[in-house]
């Protein structure tokens, strides 16, 4: 990813995020799923909507890995998506949007211009 100017949304404090899980962040009309993958010491953000049945659910899904690829499983039908690229890992669903995340002084920021 190339570093580019972005619109950073202050999403929450670190302690508000769920360790090894997700929370949903309101961004105007949009919903972004924010994941604190504590096991890997990584943050990820994706669209909250699962493209399979268009459910606002990914933030309530389970984190995991496929070999070394971090992934999220939708709670509805267990479609899984790469947290790095957004690509669907177990089907032909279209990819989900991913967003950059940064942490400064205990606050978690999401770059709301998606990586695509």
């Amino acid at each position: 990813m190339t570093e580019s100017p972005n619109d950073w949304l202050a999403a929450c404090r670190i302690e508000d995020a769920v360790e090894n899980g997700g929370v949903c962040v309101k961004n105007g009309e949009d919903q972004i799923a924010l994941f604190y993958f504590t096991r890997r010491n990584e943050w990820f953000a994706t669209q909250n909507e699962c493209p399979h049945r268009k459910q606002m659910a990914l933030s309530r899904g389970m984190l995991g890995s496929l070999t070394d690829e971090p992934k999220i499983a939708c709670p509805f039908h267990k479609k899984t998506f790469s947290l790095r690229t957004g690509e669907c890992l177990n089907g032909d669903e279209c990819a989900i949007k991913t967003y950059p995340v940064k942490v400064e002084n205990g606050t978690v920021y999401i770059g709301t211009k998606a990586n695509f």
């Binding site: 993958f37 995991g64 890995s65």
Partner: peptide, 10 residues
């Protein structure tokens, strides 16, 4: 090993 998944977690 690694980070688990939606099969082994539940």
């Amino acid at each position: 090993k690694n980070d688990g998944c939606e099969v082994c977690k539940p």
